[in-house]
Structures are given as C-alpha cells and as structure tokens.
Design a protein around this nucleic acid. Structure first.
Length: 593
RNA sequence: GGGGGUGUAGCUCAGUUGGUUAGAGCGAUCGCCUGUCACGCGAUAGGUCGAGGGUUCGAGUCCCUUCACUCCCGCCA
C-alpha cells in the first residue's frame, strides 16, 4: 500500500462509504466554525472535503495550519446528508471524517492567494510560478498542452513519421532572426548558435533517406516578445517528408489538425477542406496574409472609381493620381446604424495612425445616391459602378481607405477586424483554417535591395528551365502558411534540393557561391550527393494550444515562461557569471555605460 | 530603438478640484462560533503612495527625470 494515499482527491464517491482512507494534498481552503472545521484538500485530480471537530486531539493543530500546506489525512468516508451535498464537486456526495493527520510540507505566509479567481500581476505570478501553476485554469492549460503533445506524437507515428532529435548546439546562420550564441570553451573565439529551427537538420534527415521525420522541436530566436510570442524559445511540431509535392504536405497537416482540434475542442470547422488562398489574393481581400476567415467582411479595390470624372472626391483623387490605392469594406444593411457607429470607426482609424476612413451609405430615392459626409462627391453612375464591383446593395455602407499600398493594406486589414467586432460578425464558436499559398520568392527591402521574402531554401514554382530570373520579384515559391482564426500557425515549403538552382537564387539575393558554401556548408554539400525532393512545415505548438485553450497570451500555456524582457523571475535568469567562467571561455566584458 | 497603459498594505483595488491622521475587500494575528463549501461575527497589526527632483503655505493628486511590469510598432515565421 502506498504510504501517502489510498485514493486521490477526486476519486471518492458514495461507493466508498464507511471506508477508511488516506488522502494527501494541499489545503485549498479552510472553513473554521470554532468547534467544527472543514478542510478542502486538493491535489492534481480534484478536491475532497474533510471534516474534524474539537473532540479530536488534532483539531487545534489543524485549525492553525497555513493554507497551501501539504498534509496527509487518515479518515473515514461518510455520505453527506442531502442538504449538504455539493453538486459542483466531483466528490461532493461524500466527505472524509478526519481521524488523524500529518504535515508533509509546511507553507509560509503566501505572497499571493492561490485559491481565488482573482487576477494578479504577471510579475508576481512569474516569480512564484510554482504557486500560480496550482491554480485551476493554468493547471488545466498545462495538462491540455501535455495531452495535445502526446496526441500529436501518436498521430504522427500512425501517419508513418519517425521522431528524431537534432542538435541544440549548432552553427549560426545568416538570414532570419538573431541567434542565441554560446561561446565554445574548446574553440576559443568561436561560438555555437542555438537553432532558430531545425531547418537544415531536417533537410539533412531527408537526404539521409529517412523519408518522414517529425519532432516536437525547441526553437530559439533572440527577438522581442509579443503576447503571442515568447521571448527566446518556443516549440514547433517540425515535420519533413520526402518525394512529396505541396498537396501531400497539406493532406497530412489537414488530417492532423482536424483530428487534433476535434479531439480537444467542441468548436466546429468552418471549412472542412481548408481553402487555399494565393498570397496576392489574401493581401487584396483581407489586407494580410493571416486572415481570420470567421470574419465575413471582404476588402475591395476601388482605385479605378477615383479616376472617373463624375467622382469629385478630390483628396482621394489626388492621392490616386500619385499612385495611392483605394480599398473599401462593405457592411451589409447598416443604413439604420447611428451616426456614432460610423464616427467611432473613423475616430478609431485616426487613432491607428491612418488619415481616417471615409464612409457613406447607399440609398435609393429617385436614383441611387450616397448618404454620409462624403456621399455628395459620388454620382449615381459611379455608385452603380461601385455596387457592381463590390456587390453592395441599397442599405449597405461602404468604408474607404486611401494610401500607399502597404499602408492601405494595413489599415483596411485592421479596419476589417474592427468593423466586424463592432457589428459582432465573428463566429466565436468555430475554427476557420486556411492555407496561404504562392508566396513570392523575393521581396524588396527598404534599401531597395532584393532579399528572400521567406525561406531561402524554398523551391521556385514552375519548370526550372522556364523560371524568369531576370524578374526575380515575379518568381513564386512553393511556400505556404497555415492560418487558423487569424493566427499564423506555421509556414512551410517544398524545398529546393538542387544545388545549382540554390546558388542562382542566392546570387539574386546578393550571396556569391563562396558565401553560400561557407554559411550553409552542411546542407549545400549534402544536396550534391543525391537529395530527394522534399518539403515540410512546422506548426507552432504554443499557438495551437492557445487556440484550444482560448487564451490570448502565450504565457498562459507555457509552464515556466520568461517575462517580456526575456528574464526568468523565478530562476533569476539571465544572471551574471564569475570571472573564472569568463576566463575559461576566453571572454572579457566591456564595462556597461 | 519608439509609442500607449499600469504602479497606493502580503494580494486585488478605491482615493473627488492639491487641503486635517491615506481607505476597503481578501490574506495574516488574536478572540467567538458544530454543517460550511467565497462560512459568519468582532478586534489587532500591516504604507518610503515605484524611485529621485521640482512647483506650492501644503503633493498619493500638478510638472520634470528615472525604474519596473504590460500591450503595441520596429524586429521575428
């Protein structure tokens, strides 16, 4: 028999009536009636009410013991009387009459309450994470995370994937994020880097002939945090497959996501087959490459309307002449919305740094007309044209944004979200997955330099002989993202397994052969020894769990997260190291300013 | 690197137009209470109002600087 317990704290029911039991756990709550004391004993599994009265010699001791102390209770299970049954508790039909008890772990005065639904500051939560993690919601989130990961492992195994570990200490690579660096004691002056992702390794695994690989892989990137982005480290379901095309990867991931999200959520899928949306189309219709497809609003391009003679909206017309674009969002049947609805959105847009949103509502008197501050600038014919291109009807309203393409995409994207929220158009009870496909291989940065827009190892689309290297910005890649409810879960690609092509693409981005050989030696070398066509993806585990747990902050699904400044307040990391350690590594610190 | 928000008791917060001795709930300590499940009742302790400077007869409150946490932009797949 186990020394500490015969049952856990959620097991006992009427069936156990009159049994002598041993329970161990934390004191969740005490209710002290002076001559009668109730103790809610909690463990990982649940809560059991235990009772003791003053005739018991342990009564005084138990009365004094601190909440959150760990105790072992010996007692007898009794059925509760009907009036005292607690239907909210799994064990609410019984209670344990305490016979004796033993303190296993004392608790000091708590820096924060554990048994409350009260919110408290992250600082205190992170410093005392071990207390925070005892609380119900986050405790359940972390258990969910564990279950999600083991489910993924099982599914991946069934799909024929093999799990492999890849090195944590590896080499620094150009492109992408800032690396975390680790000095090498045995190689003074040289540094390892922690992997931003096992990208090159997983491709090498394919070259090594393993066919299907996956890993719940830690990834390290030294970039600033966001609510949905941990500083430093996060986990991906990294996977790679040989002899596949894009659709083969999609099939595997769709199957996995559907099984996973059905298993851990009761929400429905908006699309059973995930829509494939070309990058260009996504940027036009949604203003972003991570659209929330639960939101029914679409963005329309109305630039050409503002070249018409019979449209007199001069501010926009002037901007259009100098190359700006006009994008519009139609809201269905909003003619009766109060003026404040429209003005709030306009004011909100100005707060976002845009020049505001113009708007009007389409009316039908003698002829089609527009009502609203800028309505008078639009002729009936131009309105008919707008209705034709956008599908807007009488009674609908139209919001306009005008600006340079990047700006107008951005503002129309967040306006689409804002308007949908205000009109309560987003179906919160569903998951809307989609694939964003056909990403451009290259893009132009602020200094007018061509750079890889995604991953330098992606395969360009089309037959290699026909790729138009003269116009690199037109080259599309077999590069894709998977998005759910506006959350980017992952990006992936069919990889470029042809070294010659790789050199060519790198040369467009300004790397000569020598540089490529030097920086990507492991991989480029391997590709010239018989590499299979291959591709993969790497969905973010943390974000999947966030969606399933309906959390907005990644720290709510991370056991021991760092704060925004990449500090672990509980472990005191990062910390200073002593002179000897520095010396051994051949390092010297510059004095801080 | 930049912008916004927050910072008052161990915790969560209130604090009016600048005005006497800075309050509440929870927690802690002490006392009362035999059926609670957010038990109830009474009392006590607990404050560098994030820090520094300034304005003022007088600052938790106004101004400047600074620090911490957080959200966002940049950055990042």
């Amino acid at each position: 028999m186990n020394k500490y317990r015969t049952h856990n704290c959620s097991e006992l029911t009427k069936k156990n009536n009159a049994e002598n039991v041993i329970l161990s756990g934390w004191i969740n709550k005490k209710r002290d009636h002076g001559n009668l004391l109730f103790i809610d004993l909690r463990d990982n599994y649940g809560v059991t009410q235990c009772v003791i009265d003053k005739s018991n010699k342990y009564f005084i001791k138990l009365e004094k013991i601190q909440l959150e102390s760990v105790i072992k209770i010996l007692g007898k299970v009794v059925n509760r009387s009907n009036e005292t049954i607690n239907s909210e508790l799994k064990t609410g039909e019984i209670e344990v009459i305490i016979d004796s008890f033993e303190t296993l772990g004392n608790c000091k005065e708590l820096p924060m309450p554990v048994f409350t639904d009260q919110e408290y500051s992250e600082e205190i939560r992170l410093k005392y994470r071990f207390l925070d993690l005892r609380r119900k919601k986050i405790h359940e989130n972390i258990i969910l995370r564990s279950k999600v990961i083991s489910f993924i492992r099982k599914e991946m195994n069934e799909l024929g994937f093999l799990e492999f570990q890849t090195p944590i200490l590896t080499s620094s690579s150009p492109e992408g994020a800032r690396d975390f660096l680790v000095p090498s004691r045995l190689n003074p002056g040289k540094f390892y880097a922690l992997p931003q992702a096992p990208q090159q390794f997983k491709q090498l695994i394919m070259v090594s002939g393993f066919d299907k690989y996956f890993q719940i892989a830690p990834c390290f990137r030294d970039e600033d945090a966001r609510a949905d982005r941990s500083p430093g480290e996060f986990y991906q379901l990294d996977l790679e497959m040989s002899f596949v095309e894009q659709e083969d990867v999609f099939n595997v991931v769709e199957k996995l996501m559907k099984n996973l999200f059905k298993k851990f959520s009761s929400k429905k899928f908006l699309y059973n087959k995930f829509p494939r949306i070309p990058y260009k189309e996504a940027m036009l219709k949604y203003g972003t490459d991570k659209p929330d497809l639960r939101n029914p609003l679409l963005i329309n391009d109305l630039t050409s309307i503002f070249t018409r003679e019979d449209v007199k909206f001069d501010i926009f017309k002037k901007l259009v002449k100098s190359g700006s674009k006009v994008r519009a969002i139609i809201t269905k049947n909003t003619k009766d919305k109060p003026r404040s609805f429209f003005d709030n959105i306009d004011k909100w847009a100005k707060d976002q740094g845009a020049s505001g949103l113009a708007y009007f509502t389409i009316e039908n008197g003698k002829e089609i007309s527009a009502k609203g501050p800028v309505g008078k600038f639009f002729s009936s014919e131009s309105l008919n044209e707008i209705m034709k291109t956008t599908g807007a009807k009488v009674g609908d309203s139209i919001f306009f944004a005008c600006g340079k393409i990047n700006e107008v995409e951005k503002i129309s994207s967040i306006a689409r979200e804002k308007i949908a929220q205000d009109l309560d158009l987003i179906d919160k009870s569903s998951f809307a997955f989609c694939w964003i496909v056909d990403y451009p291989m290259f893009e132009i940065d602020d200094n007018n330099k061509i750079k890889f827009s995604h991953n330098p190892f992606s395969m360009p689309q089309g037959e290699i002989e026909k790729v138009d290297f003269k116009n690199p910005l037109n080259i599309k890649a077999y590069q894709y993202d998977i998005v759910c409810n506006g959350v980017e879960l992952s990006s992936g690609a069919i990889r470029n397994h042809k070294p010659d092509l790789m050199y060519k693409l790198f040369s467009i981005a300004g790397y000569d052969k020598k540089q490529v050989d030097n920086k990507f030696s492991g991989m480029i070398n391997a590709l010239s020894y018989g590499a299979p066509p291959h591709g993969g993806i790497a969905p973010g585990i943390d974000r999947i769990v966030m969606l399933l747990a309906e959390e907005k902050n990644i720290r709510e699904v991370t056991m021991f997260p760092m704060n925004q400044n990449a500090q672990d307040l509980m472990m005191n990391a990062p910390s200073e190291i002593n002179e000897d350690q520095l010396k051994e590594l051949g390092l010297a610190l510059k004095s801080k300013k």
